[in-house]
Amino acid sequence: MVHKQVLKSVSPVWAEMIDSQMKESIEIEDFSSKIVCFAVKLLYGVLINLSMENMLSLYLFAQKYHIQILLDFIEEQLIKEISPANVVHLFKFSSPDASNIPKLHQKCINYFMKCLKETIPIYAVESLGETFLASMVLKSLNSNFTDTNV
């Protein structure tokens, strides 16, 4: 059970559904009850520990229902979680062709650059393709050159 006013205040999609249909309940079929429960808890200020998979699903849920407060919160959490083990997955998830999360996408690119400079191995980096990897190497070389005092 969630207060209608809370739903209306955080989501224009839900506000329209509530106002136009005058229903006592909203059915959400595209997401598991677990994801919906996580969203409601976060909306009520309850902090929960989420796995990467749950954060990604919750982001898609918030994106579908235009819940900006959750989008911002999850994006910040995902940025904090970037690592050599998941940067490729987050890069693909945040790309313009997927979820289109520009800030997270840029942070992933920055992380690639850092790993290149520090020769840190990245899991599944080959899945990004030769063109992307070549552009990262070129950017890394250019930034190394411009960073030095010659």
Rank of each mutant, 00 (worst) to 15 (best):
D97A: 08
I69Y: 04
I120S: 01
V137G: 06
E24V: 06
M1P: 05
V87L: 05
V13G: 09
T119F: 13
N110F: 02
Y123F: 13
F31I: 03
V150E: 01
V6L: 15
E24Q: 11
V46K: 15
Y111M: 10
S9M: 14
P96F: 05
S25Q: 09
L56T: 12
I28N: 03
V46D: 13
L138G: 06
V13P: 10
I101F: 08
C115L: 03
K139V: 02
L58G: 02
A62Y: 02
K80G: 01
S11E: 09
S140H: 08
L128T: 11
L116W: 13
L78F: 06
K64M: 11
F31N: 02
S25F: 10
I28W: 03
E75R: 11
I26F: 03
S9W: 07
D72Q: 13
L7Q: 05
I122R: 00
M17N: 00
T148E: 12
I82G: 05
S140P: 00
T131S: 10
K23G: 05
N144I: 14
V137T: 08
E24W: 07
M22K: 14
V10F: 06
S57E: 15
N149I: 09
I67C: 00
A85F: 05
W14Y: 10
P84R: 05
F31M: 03
V6R: 07
D72P: 01
V88I: 03
M22T: 08
H89L: 14
Q63N: 13
V125G: 00
A39C: 04
N142K: 14
N100K: 11
V2C: 13
A62W: 02
N86P: 01
F73W: 07
P96V: 02
F73S: 07
L104N: 12
Q106M: 07
Q68F: 10
K114A: 00
T131E: 11
A62I: 02
V88C: 07
C115V: 02
Y123R: 11
E24L: 11
S20A: 10
V150K: 04
A39N: 03
K4S: 14
E27W: 00
N54Y: 06
I28T: 01
D72K: 13
I82M: 07
E118M: 04
V2A: 11
I101Q: 09
M113G: 00
I109C: 13
F112V: 12
F61R: 04
I35K: 04
E126M: 05
L71G: 09
A134N: 11
C115F: 03
S94E: 06
I67D: 02
F112N: 08
A124F: 06
L50I: 02
F38I: 15
P96Y: 07
F93N: 09
K92Y: 08
M52N: 02
Q63F: 06
A15S: 12
L71A: 07
L70F: 01
E81N: 07
L43N: 03
P96K: 11
V13D: 10
Q21K: 13
L43W: 06
P102F: 02
I109S: 10
L60S: 14
L78M: 12
N86D: 04
Y123N: 13
F38L: 14
K41V: 10
